[in-house]
């Protein structure tokens, strides 16, 4: 089972690395959204610092959402998804491998990129630990929940906007806890509580959502 998982992960990584431009898109989008806010609300550093927890998290949410549309599309169109649903191997292994690869190339990349952008928004350096940790715990939840929506909408011609409608309300707890952790840190309070909650959300979504994703894929393929 683990060998299968690793094999799949390698395949996904190989496929994703063949299209580097597509990989960079969510990251560039993340940077652009962050850059839009100072232009919209003004360059006062005090205000930007106050807003930065929310800005970073909203931008991360949207960037992950943007990248989700193509998560299963390629495999759906070339028929490999159908092969997977029919294969004797459990579907959740495939699902976990796909989501894991997606997370490494978007979620983890966002985590790496975020300190630079947080610096531009004036987030003090002592909060970087909380920023990295909260994104590290929160982005897997975003990928997993988003994959449920992506699985349900993969068969549709224009699933992108519908995907946003389905998934964004489900992202709200992560947004609240993630930006709450950063805000607490910004005001000099401990953020352990929020981080622990984010961790438990991650564990919960890691255990439950593969089944929902699998069910969604079966429905989309069966249509």
């Amino acid at each position: 089972m683990i060998g299968l998982f690793v094999l799949l992960l390698k395949r996904e990584a190989l496929l994703l690395c063949r299209r580097p431009a597509e990989l960079a898109n969510p990251l560039v989008f993340f940077a652009i959204v962050i850059a839009l806010f100072p232009l919209a609300v003004g360059p006062e550093s005090q205000l930007l610092q106050e807003l930065s927890p929310g800005l970073v998290w909203v931008a991360a949410l949207l960037a992950v959402l943007l990248s989700l549309d193509g998560l299963f599309r390629g495999d759906y169109e070339d028929g490999s998804l159908e092969q997977w649903v029919l294969s004797p191997h459990p579907l959740f292994v495939l699902v976990l491998a796909k989501v894991a690869a997606h997370w490494v190339f978007t979620g983890l990349a966002l985590v790496v990129l975020s300190p630079v952008l947080a610096l531009m928004l004036g987030l003090p350096a002592q909060c970087f630990g909380v920023l990295l940790l909260s994104l590290l715990l929160g982005t897997p939840v975003l990928s997993l929940l988003g994959a449920v929506g992506a699985a349900l909408t993969v068969g549709l011609k224009r699933g992108g906007l519908l995907l946003a409608l389905l998934i964004l309300p489900l992202y709200i707890p992560v947004l609240i806890l993630g930006s709450g952790a950063l805000q607490a840190c910004l005001h000099g309070m401990p953020a352990t509580g929020q981080l622990l909650w984010l961790g438990s959300l991650m564990v919960l979504s890691l255990t439950l959502s593969p089944f929902a994703i699998g069910a969604g894929l079966r429905i989309s393929v069966g249509e």
Partner: peptide, 20 residues
């Protein structure tokens, strides 16, 4: 498939509802 997809979404939503 529309009914099944809605069913999956409703179950995912109802698990999320208390968390939200």
């Amino acid at each position: 498939s529309s009914a099944k997809a809605c069913a999956v979404l409703a179950i995912v939503g109802v698990i999320n509802l208390p968390i939200i």
